[in-house]
Design a protein around this nucleic acid. Sequence first.
DNA 1: TATTTCGTTATTGCATACAAAATTGACGAT
DNA 2: ATCGTCAATTTTGTATGCAATAACGAAATA
Lengths: 231, 231
Amino acid sequence: MNVATPAKGARAVEQAYDYLKNAILSGEFAARMHLREGAIATQLGLSRTPVREAFRRLGAEGWLEITPNAGVKVAEWSPRDIEEVFEVRMLIESRVAGRAAQRATEAQIERLRALAEQMSAMADCPVDQVLDERSTVNAEFHELLVEAAGSQRLKRLLDLVVEIPMVKWVFGSYQPAEIRRSAAHHHEIVAALEAHDAEWASAAMKSHILSAHHAVMRRLRQLDSAPNQDQ
Amino acid sequence: MNVATPAKGARAVEQAYDYLKNAILSGEFAARMHLREGAIATQLGLSRTPVREAFRRLGAEGWLEITPNAGVKVAEWSPRDIEEVFEVRMLIESRVAGRAAQRATEAQIERLRALAEQMSAMADCPVDQVLDERSTVNAEFHELLVEAAGSQRLKRLLDLVVEIPMVKWVFGSYQPAEIRRSAAHHHEIVAALEAHDAEWASAAMKSHILSAHHAVMRRLRQLDSAPNQDQ
DNA sequence: TATTTCGTTATTGCATACAAAATTGACGAT
DNA sequence: ATCGTCAATTTTGTATGCAATAACGAAATA
């Protein structure tokens, strides 16, 4: 039924990887759920080998828990785990912003400004309608910023932590005012870069992340109290 | 000389992983060197499958660079890369120390104090003689601290960044005075924990990491100007 | 009825076989 | 001599088969 998207390279591992990651992030696979190599393989029309490789990759990235002779389980994300993700993002991305303020070229700043404009233009559209586009533009903004900072290793680390679908989830948690605030943050970061003020850029980014953190944790509390009646 | 140690679990993947990681970190495999699944496999008396799995794991951890249909290369660590590693360590570990100051139990602080004492006791021994033990005790200290902070995800992230063998390398870069300073830092961090002073603990840890950073970068400059023997 | 033991089954780990892609080297054209 | 082309070889990617280990369940005993 799904068979996922064949991906660009059409490589079997990519296919398995994309399918699994999507299933995990979309909630199709519940937390703690046990996954079997064989089942996934036949479902995707592949052999166990590429599925197994995808398992390992996802394990290294923290999405699956692997126990040697038993199988793999979908990792569980506690509120504390999510808090820690935002903690890391805040620490690293604010540092990155500061460095970018010292090193960004005119062209890079220009491109960042354009992305910030795009973001603002979407601010008044209905939330659900531009969710994907907002996520994409936002991801581009943050990525370009790391590039401007010239921090390749930090980028790798961030990629490991800040998953695009999770970003989408963040926007789903935003209230209209918070979306506008987020867009404003982007503009402010660009302004700090133009001024080559590392402190300012760093502080603005810190606000940006903490604001997102707040929105997500509020969402979590809502989800926690709404659908469960046993407490 | 190779064939590595059969490791505890005697699992083939572990064997391959341990062998490869050791070879990379010891410099037996030069940077940018191309590794072939088949060669490693026959050399270790295994099939390609577990070797391949080890490759992927090491790739995810940043020790190997994997390009889809070409093979794997030993990753190159530029001075900037190493700088970034210390940047991350500084950011995360100082935050962790601050959190530990707020949450550590008496028992945990006691244990940390004992480790700090052990460290001091070794401070006056010849550098090379206690290199391994120093690394072990140091690693334990930092690990226990993360545990006291109750930050499981951050611990995973740190594990990815701060490799034990690299820690050993740090101690090899220390001058006698720096070893004593490092031991003093540990004591100071324990004191900050006893006082439940997050700012203090955080600042002490920041000093601790920056001091190590400084020592390693100095070592790098020395190696760079001196003739090196690795191919 | 609860619990332990043992045999069956299912699932993972590893090895091998085969397919696809890339690298290499020789050859020929300019 | 240099560059480009193409085939031979090597190397990676995937599939399958077999062995080892763990999960499951039934039977037997207390």
